[in-house]
Computed example of a mutant assay.
Amino acid sequence: MYDLIIKNAILIDDSITDIAIYQGKIVKIDSVISDPTIRILDLKQKYYVSAGWIDSHTHCFARSPIYHDEPDLIGVKAGVTSVVDAGSVGALDVDAFYQLAQQAQTHVYSFLNISKIGLIRQNELADMQDIDVALFDKTLAKYPHFIIGIKVRMSRSVVGENGILPLIKAKEMQRKTGLPLMIHVGNNPPELDEIADLLTKGDIITHCFNGKPNQIFDKQNNLRDSIKRAIERGVILDIGHGGESFSFAVAERAKCLDIYPNTISSDIYSKNRLQGPVFSLANVMTKFICLGYSRKRILDSVTQNAAQVLRLKNKGKLTVGYDADLTVFDIKQQAIELADSDGEVRQSHEQFVPLASIVADTTKHSLYIEITEEGSKNALRISN
């Protein structure tokens, strides 16, 4: 007995398979799975399926005054089954965010800002008094399955005169919890070298390929020694594209040196979703086709790598026993122009196009299926 059978799905290695789902779990993967009484999603050997896409850097607290969006608009309606809000909220407004997140069909998680005020203003770490450790610890204990990490933004406009002090404080707070720490890097001060040397295994540098002066390459276009050491220690590189934080030139230089991001994320919110240059996680993924990344490397960066970095159990793999979070997509063979955050435009000969999101609720043993607008155009539908 199954709840859904996906038939004739193409995997990223171009093999064809059927997938059976029961009570929110993948229970069978085989060349042929038949049951005429069960709901069928037939991909007709035309469309791909993967583990559900995970966007590990978004801003989706709808009530945030600066960076805000709706989880389902950047999630299930865009082929993304899990989104992580990266620091929009602090301890003072996480209750409101949690309540809104529970109403979404997309899985929503939070990296809690170390500043209790979150992003109600751009310089949330200019006043060290806004780091309330006791309140932070209490909040983490209240939402152990919702708050999966810690966020600290380390750029001049955020920290003011405090320099490296917020990161030192964040590392102290992290050591008590063991949660992943995501560090936003941007304009100096503080200097990237100073930031990188404080980071340890599992810490996440987001905006890793930004084109700002404080980037991972020095003025001679060599990888900074501090970044080389950080990578060797197991520090994670995350894209975090955003409106100002992704450069084709930096990403291309990194690839020449065999430096790849662990995770590809969007840093999406309403403005850069509607006006670009982000638009969607799929659009960001397509930019890495321009750079010569393999399809598998790109998909791994939004599935198994993301699940591992974020410590999301039973997600990120198309494997029996894992949660039935799946993304159905096409890889269209058509030219598209893509812009980075610096305005450089490149062309891709193909693009990722999400067609459907399948999201498991393992607590209720239920399944939510969202056919995207493009999926509807392609006559994708559930039979029975």
Rank of each mutant, 00 (worst) to 15 (best):
M1W: 05
L4H: 04
N8C: 10
A9K: 03
I12T: 11
I16G: 04
I19D: 00
K25L: 13
S31M: 08
P36D: 15
P36I: 11
Q45L: 04
Y48S: 04
V49K: 00
A51S: 15
S56M: 11
H57K: 13
T58H: 05
H59M: 11
A62I: 14
P71L: 09
L73C: 07
T81N: 08
V89H: 01
G90R: 04
L92S: 08
F97S: 01
Y98V: 12
A104T: 11
L112H: 00
N113K: 09
I117N: 04
I117Q: 06
G118N: 05
E124F: 02
L125K: 00
M128I: 15
D132P: 04
D132T: 11
V133S: 14
L135K: 12
F136S: 01
D137R: 12
L140K: 03
I148F: 07
R156C: 00
S157C: 07
S157L: 09
V158Y: 00
V159K: 01
N162S: 06
P166Y: 02
K171L: 14
K171I: 15
E172D: 14
K176Y: 06
L179M: 12
L179S: 08
P180K: 12
L181M: 13
N187I: 07
N187F: 03
P189I: 08
P190A: 05
I195T: 02
A196T: 08
D197T: 12
K201L: 07
C208F: 00
F209H: 03
N210C: 11
K212C: 01
P213C: 09
F217P: 01
D218L: 07
N222W: 04
D225M: 10
V235R: 04
D238A: 11
I239S: 02
S245D: 13
S245C: 14
V250D: 01
V250E: 01
V250H: 02
A254C: 08
K255P: 02
L257Q: 15
D258T: 12
I268M: 10
L291W: 02
G292H: 09
R295K: 14
D300K: 09
S301K: 06
S301H: 06
Q304S: 15
Q304M: 13
R311T: 14
L312V: 09
K313L: 10
G316Q: 07
V320R: 10
G321M: 10
D325E: 13
T327N: 06
F329Y: 15
I331C: 02
E337D: 14
E337I: 05
A339D: 05
G343V: 12
E350M: 12
F352P: 02
V353I: 15
P354M: 11
K364R: 15
T372R: 06
E373H: 13
N384K: 14
